[in-house]
C-alpha cells in the first residue's frame, strides 16, 4: 500500500516537472509562430493590400494553434464590427493569454503592435512590423535561453521533489 502511494506521488511530481519544462518549450515555439504570423500578415498588408479581417483570417490558416486561434478570433471580431481594431485585438489577446504559454512581457509586445494596427499608412505599418518583430526576437532569444537553462532543471527537480516527499512521509 505504502509503495503504491509512493509511486503515485513520485509520478505526479515528475509529471509536474515535465509539464513546467514543456511550458518553457512551448513559449519559445509560440513566439516563433507569432513571429511567422506577423511576417505573413505584413506580406498580406504590404504586397496584396488585403484588409485586416481577411488578412488575419488567411494568416490564421498558416500557423499552428494557439496563435491561429488568436488571429481567427481577431478576424471574427473585426467582421462582427468592433469599434476599433485595437479593441478587438485586446479582446483576442485576453483569450490568447488564457490558452498559451506566453508571458506578460511577450503579450505586451503583441499588444503594442495592435495599438497601431490599421491606423497608419503602409510605410508606418511596415516600420511597426519591423519593430515588433525585433521585439519578439528579443523575447524569443530570452525564452530559448531560459528554456536551455531550466528545462532539465524542472524535470529533475520534479522527480527529486517527489522522492523527497515520499521519504519524509514514509
Amino acid at each position: 500500500m505504502k509503495l503504491l502511494g509512493a509511486i503515485f506521488i513520485i509520478c505526479a511530481s515528475t509529471g509536474i516537472g515535465f509539464a513546467l519544462a514543456r511550458n518553457l518549450k512551448e513559449r519559445t515555439k509560440q513566439l516563433r509562430d507569432m513571429k511567422q504570423a506577423i511576417t505573413s500578415l505584413e506580406a498580406e498588408m504590404v504586397y496584396t493590400m488585403t484588409p485586416l479581417a481577411e488578412a488575419c483570417h488567411r494568416v490564421s490558416q498558416q500557423v499552428p494553434s494557439p496563435v491561429s486561434t488568436f488571429f481567427s478570433t481577431f478576424s471574427d471580431a473585426l467582421q462582427k464590427g468592433e469599434s476599433s481594431a485595437y479593441q478587438a485585438w485586446t479582446k483576442s489577446l485576453a483569450s490568447l493569454k488564457a490558452h498559451s504559454c506566453l508571458q506578460q512581457s511577450d503579450l505586451d509586445v503583441i499588444l503594442q503592435f495592435g495599438a497601431s494596427l490599421g491606423q497608419q499608412d503602409l510605410e508606418q505599418q511596415q516600420k511597426q512590423v519591423k519593430l515588433t518583430l525585433s521585439n519578439i526576437d528579443r523575447q524569443e532569444l530570452e525564452a530559448s535561453e531560459k528554456q536551455k537553462r531550466s528545462e532539465n532543471m524542472y524535470k529533475s527537480l520534479g522527480f527529486l521533489g517527489g522522492l523527497l516527499m515520499t521519504i519524509i512521509l514514509i
Binding site: M45, T50, E82, A85, G118
Partner: peptide
C-alpha cells in the same frame, strides 16, 4: 475615428 475605421475596414494601409 470610427468613420475612418469603417471606411478602411480597420485597415488604413489599404487606402494609401
Amino acid at each position: 475615428q470610427y468613420i475612418l475605421n469603417q471606411l478602411s475596414n480597420y485597415s488604413l494601409y489599404t487606402l494609401d
